[in-house]
Design a binder for these strands. Sequence first.
DNA 1: TCATAACCGAGACGGTACGTCGGGTCTTCCG
DNA 2: CGGAAGACCCGACGTACCGTCTCGGTTATGA
Lengths: 204, 204, 204, 204
Amino acid sequence: MSPGQSEKSAAGRKRDADAHDRLLSAAFDLTSARSSTNVSVNEIAREARVGKQTIYRWWPSKSELILDALLQRTLEQTPFPHTSDARSDFAKHLAEIIDMFNSPAGAVIKELVAGAQNEPGLTEQFVRRFWTPRRSLSRERLEQAIADRQVRSDLDPETVLDAMYGVLWTRLVLGHLPLRREDVDDLVTVVWKGIGGPEPDPVG
Amino acid sequence: MSPGQSEKSAAGRKRDADAHDRLLSAAFDLTSARSSTNVSVNEIAREARVGKQTIYRWWPSKSELILDALLQRTLEQTPFPHTSDARSDFAKHLAEIIDMFNSPAGAVIKELVAGAQNEPGLTEQFVRRFWTPRRSLSRERLEQAIADRQVRSDLDPETVLDAMYGVLWTRLVLGHLPLRREDVDDLVTVVWKGIGGPEPDPVG
Amino acid sequence: MSPGQSEKSAAGRKRDADAHDRLLSAAFDLTSARSSTNVSVNEIAREARVGKQTIYRWWPSKSELILDALLQRTLEQTPFPHTSDARSDFAKHLAEIIDMFNSPAGAVIKELVAGAQNEPGLTEQFVRRFWTPRRSLSRERLEQAIADRQVRSDLDPETVLDAMYGVLWTRLVLGHLPLRREDVDDLVTVVWKGIGGPEPDPVG
Amino acid sequence: MSPGQSEKSAAGRKRDADAHDRLLSAAFDLTSARSSTNVSVNEIAREARVGKQTIYRWWPSKSELILDALLQRTLEQTPFPHTSDARSDFAKHLAEIIDMFNSPAGAVIKELVAGAQNEPGLTEQFVRRFWTPRRSLSRERLEQAIADRQVRSDLDPETVLDAMYGVLWTRLVLGHLPLRREDVDDLVTVVWKGIGGPEPDPVG
DNA sequence: TCATAACCGAGACGGTACGTCGGGTCTTCCG
DNA sequence: CGGAAGACCCGACGTACCGTCTCGGTTATGA
């Protein structure tokens, strides 16, 4: 992302790191706060005390600025839990995602997913830069679990992961049901044990 | 006392049903065709040979017009399959939803979900008028399956349903993976049998 | 006597004439009152408790309705003063026109003259129906004065009349100076005696 | 303390003088050409290759733009003729005004006078910026003529001037009679000699 | 040391779409 | 069939926002 490594003539003023940070903060904060009405580029520029040109010098569009702001704010990206029990690791991770979706970051993600529909290329950006890295962590843990024989190996991993995480994404975007940590247990049970057949022996 | 005293005065020209239909058609067709770039109200009005005012007389926003157009086009709403085998019924229904998501209606749904993010109240409208009726069909079939002891009863039905349908919604909106009928088998297996433990005996 | 003298709609014809009158009144009153902002046809119809179609059944456009309203209100059309002294007759008439221009009718006339600029044919209507009849009275008096040898005969009567009345029309429309009865004396003197040469002998 | 403390910050792109000129030209040309039908702001913007916002950034309304366009086009403002004969000077000036009223500028003036009726403040603008400077020239010549004893001094100069120029303004706006240079002679005679009494001795 | 180059805040620019307003036509129902 | 009510088509309005361009001015090389 940083363009500075090009061998262009080194003359010229350096990029203002502070303005850059103010922009990411303004973009994230305004977007997450004013979820109902759209945030305009002018507002972000004013809030960041920055000229509009400074935005368009570094980002091709407002949406990509917001995407960068989201990435920066979610950089912590807690490493996927990794104990000996894959099922509880996933349960823990799903709960963490729920927390994130309920945080301001969730509002920003909604905004981005929405804006991406009319902006070809942005969906691809979002998937590649935000979604894929996180999905990789999940998939690695899943493959480890398969290697550990904790998970059967004959199913498409993407489908398995979407069965879990798709619940969260759908609820974030559609909002038809709240995102609650309490639902994680049932969700993991559905995917781990399946819903088929009568309830298992409670003693078992 | 006259019972009709509270009736609205019948004076005035009636709403033009034909213009109404032309509007719904234009809204649906233009929206599904021009998925990348947004459709303008003027375009819809022109295509429907209708004054812009006529749109705003009956719909508070372009999005709600498109929602109505979507509802009209998906009215067929094939009844949920209902054989003695719940699992195969769901498999069939999931495949039908995939077909719909891959049809023009899918593009319209994406557009609506996107537009709804900045329009408070529209998400609620979409969920209530489009999503809820379909979800009800699914939930009824699920409850029947529980009554038939084909599905265990100790899990939250909403979570179970989201584990299946959320996969499709997420792929529609995020577009990270294609929506393919071939994936239905794995998906149903995940939810019915669970992913836990080693693969079942192939002789089964 | 019938006790129901105030009952509604005794006959269609009667209401017809009444609605017609209400329309003229509403058109005149609203136009003269809201000189700054335009009056809409809907407002006139509502004020007159009349359907819009009733307006367009009788008048080809809003402007012609207002013209009719103006004509009705200025029907008195006091006959041109006719004494033995043409100059004082004109002075009297000019003062009367000033009064009319300063009355609500003046505002309506301004509105009409303004609206006529973009409505080809309306200027012609206004001139023919409002202006010409009044001008005829003036011209007749002028020709009588010529016949009486009170006014020289070698000048174009239209130019003579415009030299007098044009002052009023211009001040009405441009508003660069107020329309005051006190100015009539000077005006008549200008036209009768001319401005040429030094002031006449005050004794003369 | 620095004397320039109240100066506006010089930051930001300067106003585009070329776009400004294109706008004035487009406004004048379109308005004078399409006298019957109104010119829309969009048309002017398109003709001038300018965004509509640029118009509204600098002018509060279409009419004031047209007024500016008129002022620019009539800037030549030929100096009032000034020979030793006031009467012939006025005759010459009146003919020039007739020519202007018959030129495209006349159509623009009509449009402005019309549009001003519904736009409070515009009439005042028009009078102050277009009419007053020209009137000043006329009044100065008249006062000179009075000083030269060519014109009597006991009459209100405004009334005298309106008696001459009001003829032209009225014919421009009402259009009841054509504006012809041939009428200037009679007009000047009316005002200079007066219409009173029998025709002068032809030998005179 | 000073010209050059890239940066910066500010804000005007061309353009597209918005939602509203008003004119004049058309349609329904009532009396 | 006249008349009130009001929906209809059309087109202009003035506003909002996007992404670009231009201004005066500010750092930082590198000749």
